[in-house]
Design a protein around this nucleic acid. Structure first.
Lengths: 247, 247
DNA sequence: CATTATTGAATGAGCATTCAATCAATGCAA
DNA sequence: TTGCATTGATTGAATGCTCATTCAATAATG
């Protein structure tokens, strides 16, 4: 049977919601491109699926979702046409599995950062911010794929649901952290909900800036922008980063 | 600004069909001969082009760029298949003209607001912020189209070329205004460039939030979020909005 | 009458999907 | 170990569909 039927996807969504992660964690990555035995004609389902998902990310980043065909994916993977339908049943399913892969990766990244951060609310909030600009997450290719799916999310229920669940969990946690920080510092004026809203907007907005104008600033300065915002809202908890004077 | 301040697209489309032409152009109406019949089979190039662009916006909002075909556009416009190629030569050109239309509309909106605002830098900056959430600009349909284009990685170069001048102009103006405000208030810590970067990110990021989670908050509260940010950065120049306590 | 706009059937290109044939790996028996 | 059978993976040509584009015919306009 295939890698992802509808029920698989639904189950995975549930796992995301409850924080569980089925199957191989992303930290122990499945080697897709550099095989030990380079001449192997056949490989395990897991390896091929991962290889095809990577090729799909490549193709979407290069050609967009509309320009991604079975040919562009299989060519990029160095395989033949029929193999996607063999492993994923349909192109639509391949796309959904690709988005699911990115969603899981992102979720793991910030949740792990959140849990291993210091005890204080401000440390935890900063860890979540940092996770968004981690080199594994914040690559031009992956940003391109995220926005390709965002552009379709309005109509495709599956995409929307996937993104929505991850977003809500992070949003709720951030709001709680802001609540706590707000009480600790007795800050007035900007309630936790609005701070969390602005943070959510900044994640996506800065990602889009990085994607559209990569020469303007990079990952690290992007992160500093958000820290700067937090230091204006919660000055006792976050320090204003140093910004170099630009040419 | 422009003709038909509050007209939604459905109304505008109707007007176009009947030759009234309200909202056909952004700052001046395209005049059609007033004495002709309401039901003309033929119309001027300008009228038809605008009608087709409106139909394209509708179709992209409903079906995405990938799901937008010559048929969906011409059906929505109530015309026949061949007419797009007659007026726009190709589908790709129609898409580019549609993006250009939105970009120009947006540009006109904030530039007019900027120029007719009060003399102070803070008034002008606020006018630009407000323009992003004006009911003519900030509609679910148009937001959907913006992000559909952002997501089309394959054509990013082409699309970007169309809008980068407009983006840069706004960015530069905002940076200058922040510079001036910063000097007036002797504010320390967050240089004008970074404030302008955050503003740009917030425009797109909050638009995406409005599109993805329209039930969370609306246009006006969206605007208040940005004002809140500005009041934290430039407290002597911007007043913190009132945020109601949420349930 | 000349010009311009519009129609919609016809064309052909590109695409996802299917599937019969082929190849590789593994298990199993002798 | 070798030969053989079974299972699973892979290929790529063939199929049929959707769609952008063309264009000859037709209609409106002035």
């Amino acid at each position: 049977m295939g890698a992802g039927s509808d029920s698989d996807l639904a189950q995975a969504l549930n796992d995301l919601r409850t924080g569980k992660l089925r199957g191989a964690s992303m930290s122990q990555s499945i080697e897709a491109s550099p095989k030990t035995n380079a001449r192997r004609r056949t490989a395990s389902k897991e390896v091929r699926c991962q290889q095809l998902i990577n090729a799909t990310i490549d193709s979407i980043a290069r050609n967009g979702i509309g320009g991604t065909t079975m040919s562009t994916v299989t060519e990029s993977a160095g395989l033949s046409m029929g193999i996607v339908n063999f492993h994923f049943q349909s192109k639509q399913n391949l796309l959904e599995e690709t988005l699911l892969y990115l969603a899981k990766e992102h979720h793991e990244q910030w949740l792990a950062a959140f849990e291993s951060a210091g005890m204080s609310a401000s440390d935890k909030l900063l860890a979540i911010v940092d996770a968004h600009f981690h080199p594994r997450i914040c690559t031009p290719k992956k940003l391109a794929v995220w926005f390709a799916f965002f552009g379709e999310a309005g109509r495709r229920k599956v995409y929307r649901k996937l993104i929505e669940d991850i977003d809500r969990e992070r949003y709720t946690i951030a709001q709680d952290l802001c609540q706590q920080i707000g009480e600790e510092g007795a800050y007035q004026g900007l309630p936790p909900r609005q701070v969390a809203n602005i943070l959510e907007a900044l994640y996506d907005g800065i990602w889009l800036e990085l994607l559209a104008y990569p020469e303007n600033y990079g990952r690290l300065e992007a992160r500093d922008h958000i820290t700067a915002f937090l230091s204006k809202v919660y000055p006792k908890h976050f320090q204003m980063p140093e910004f170099k004077q630009d040419a």
